[in-house]
């Protein structure tokens, strides 16, 4: 059931010291290079201009004189240049579904979703990753411009807590608009209930953009296991459309079966596109989701 009157209080995300310490030791897993050789917080397969020494090689004309290792030259009279490792900057895209359906559940799916994103954003910023964010509603909502460094954590949290779950869902349209911003691809985390016919298309678009995508599929227990008797008129939280159903045992059993089929289809869809599919419930603890589920699925390490 949706309580639209509930508004989160700022700051809503206040992890305790132990959780913060654990978050500080985590980082987002990127299994392939994304080619952004800016100064970042993580090593790259490419060599670059960082402080980390990688190897020596013979001097060739055109090499940077500043990289000549004069100590070796003094011992061997040959010119060698120092080869240093390049440090890659990972762009982390944190995408939050802000459609009206996210407001349902106890606690609301929306609250759990942005708490999880806050924790991931914290981890990313602490790891000197570039964090970009966007609210996905009927279209592309407010965005959080790519920022790097822990100093932007506050702004990121403010960005998250400014969002409200309201309106209809236009997930694929919003993703298309986000992709059009030409941000570097990287690791993307989408937190959504995926209650839209075009949710698979949106997931496919993000994966095709080159992101290492993790979909956090958040559902609430009331939605997954409804319990009511007699005839009821179901009102759609987003569109206001209604549906009269007779809450008999057979129908509820069929509904639960449909939920299972739906999530299985989504899981298979994600697996085919190398997208991590992480089903979560809104009433699960954020620590459990971040420290256990996301680590089990390889999103965090």
């Amino acid at each position: 059931m949706i309580d639209r009157t509930a508004r989160p209080a700022l700051p809503a995300f206040a992890p305790d010291a132990a959780f913060r310490a654990k978050l500080a030791n985590l980082s987002l897993v990127s299994q392939r290079p994304h080619g952004h050789l800016h100064t970042g917080g993580r090593r790259s397969r490419a060599t670059g201009s960082s402080l980390e020494f990688a190897d020596h090689r013979s001097y060739s004309p055109g090499d940077d004189y500043r990289q000549i290792d004069w100590n070796i030259y003094a011992r061997t009279d040959e010119l060698f240049v120092k080869v240093r490792e390049s440090e890659e900057t990972l762009v982390v895209h944190l995408l939050l579904d802000v459609s009206g359906s996210m407001a349902s559940g106890a606690p609301a799916k929306f609250e759990t979703a942005r708490a999880v994103l806050a924790a991931i954003g914290w981890t990313a910023l602490a790891s000197r990753d570039v964090v970009a964010g966007a609210a996905l509603g009927v279209g592309l909502g407010e965005t959080f411009a790519p920022r790097q460094g822990e100093g932007y954590l506050g702004r990121f949290l403010e960005f998250l807590w400014r969002q409200q779950a309201d309106g209809t869902t236009g997930l694929s349209r919003a993703v298309a608009a986000y992709n059009a911003r030409a941000l570097p691809h990287g690791v993307a985390v989408l937190v959504s209930d995926l209650l839209a016919e075009d949710a698979p298309r949106a997931i496919g678009a993000l994966a095709q953009r080159g992101h290492e995508l993790t979909v956090l599929h958040v559902l609430d227990d009331e939605f997954a296991n409804p319990a009511f008797a007699d005839e009821v008129e179901l009102i759609d939280a987003e569109g206001g459309s209604s549906l009269e159903v007779l809450g008999d045992v057979d129908l509820l059993r069929a509904y639960r079966q449909a939920i299972g089929d739906w999530t299985s289809d989504l899981q298979r869809f994600c697996h085919r596109r190398h997208v991590r599919y992480v089903p979560i419930r809104s009433n699960w603890a954020v620590e459990d989701i971040v420290l256990r589920r996301l680590r089990e699925h390889g999103t965090l390490a």
Partner: peptide, 20 residues
């Protein structure tokens, strides 16, 4: 009048009714 219940989405309900 029958009870009115607000749900997150009718997506799955419609699929259920349609299949059933």
């Amino acid at each position: 009048r029958r009870q009115r219940v607000v749900v997150a989405s009718l997506l799955i309900w419609r699929r259920t009714i349609h299949a059933r």
